[in-house]
């Protein structure tokens, strides 16, 4: 007899049946009881075999379903990763964790609003090839978005060359900390711009982009605006417009903040009061402060070392210097020093 998973049970049953057929059991009652027992065992055995078969089928079905579910999950994960790029990480998280309803609902909150754009962008676009402009803009937005995310900002939207970013929703560390995080982010962005400008210049772009930033703190309406079918998570209100006005009045490579924001960050940055701004819809003039300490200590943390004088042009990208390259550069520079000394 070959291998069968119920080999032993089948053998026991066959033996019992043979015994019954032989009729060697003593007494009619014993014969009858043994027959009943054998029939009951046979029935139980059949049921067990059926149950095992059924269980195997169910398990196989479950395996198939799990596999298909895994595939669907992987697909959804891929899809949500793609979708995440269209949303701010905090907005994405609050929707995907179920912390926020996707519904037309807004609330009034004190936020710090950041507005930026590129000086003379329209002029620049006319003077440049579209490919070059695409490269510059992507480089610019990628770097700025990375800094914004690092600082916990909610990136509202990119409008052409402009960025609308805010702090205080869906996550807030308190009004003061939100304002400080926003100003720290703006400074980090302008510092990074300095590096980017060097990079762009070294690639032959004669008009590197220059960013202007305006920051204001105040009550805004934040939430989902639009229709039930198509909504936009954004902010509206006079304070948002004021941030835009401040940005319009900021120096190129500068940051202009309102008195409200300045009061929250006065121990963090040095500022200089500028001419007050007359904003639409605001009766009083708005006091404005330019941050003067943007580049403090920047030379030591910049990835570039740059020297430019008549007869000398040096640009060193420290991030590209691994151990070997560093040694090689030192040898080159020593060679230059020797030539200069003779």
């Amino acid at each position: 007899m070959g291998f069968e998973i119920f080999k032993k049970e089948e053998a026991a049953l066959a033996a019992a049946k043979a015994l019954l057929q032989a009729g060697t059991l003593e007494g009619a009652a014993a014969q009858e009881h043994f027959e009943t027992l054998t029939k009951a065992y046979e029935k139980l055995f059949k049921t067990t075999k059926r149950l095992v078969r059924m269980s195997d089928r169910n398990e196989a079905e479950l395996n198939r379903a799990t596999k298909s579910l895994d595939e669907k999950n992987a697909m959804l994960e891929g899809l949500s990763k793609k979708l995440a790029k269209y949303l701010s990480p905090q907005v994405y998280d609050s929707i995907f964790t179920g912390a926020k309803d996707v519904a037309l609902r807004t609330e009034r909150k004190k936020l710090t609003v950041f507005f930026s754009d590129i000086k003379n962008f329209t002029q620049t676009t006319e003077d440049m090839q579209p490919e070059d402009l695409t490269y510059l803009l992507n480089d610019y937005f990628s770097e700025m978005s990375r800094i914004a995310i690092e600082h916990g900002a909610t990136i509202d939207k990119f409008i052409g060359d402009a960025m609308l970013i805010f702090f205080g929703d869906p996550e807030s560390r308190g009004v003061k900390e939100d304002a400080r995080a926003c100003v720290a982010m703006a400074i980090a962005m302008q510092r990074r711009m300095r590096d980017l400008q060097e990079r762009w210049r070294s690639k032959g772009f004669t008009q590197p982009l220059q960013m202007r930033i305006g920051i204001n703190t105040g009550y805004c309406n934040v939430g989902n605006f639009g229709s039930e079918d198509r909504m936009d998570y954004t902010i509206i209100g006079g304070e948002v417009n004021l941030a835009a006005r401040l940005e319009g009045n900021a120096d190129p490579d500068g940051i202009l903040i309102s008195a409200e924001t300045q009061a929250l960050v006065s121990d963090l940055v040095q500022t200089e009061e500028r001419e007050a701004i007359q904003a639409k819809g605001i009766r009083k003039e708005v006091r404005a402060f330019a941050i003067t300490s943007i580049m403090d200590g920047f030379e030591n943390e910049s990835r570039y070392v740059k020297m430019e004088e008549d007869g000398l042009y040096l640009l060193l990208d420290l991030e590209k210097m691994d151990e070997d390259k560093r040694k090689q550069t030192i040898t080159h520079l020593l060679g230059v020093v020797q030539r200069l000394a003779t």
Binding site: F6, V52, S55
Partner: peptide, 14 residues
């Protein structure tokens, strides 16, 4: 392992 395998294992233990 599935139920049939479980039966095989029980036999193996025996």
């Amino acid at each position: 392992f599935n139920s049939s395998t479980a039966k095989v294992l029980m036999g193996l233990f025996d």
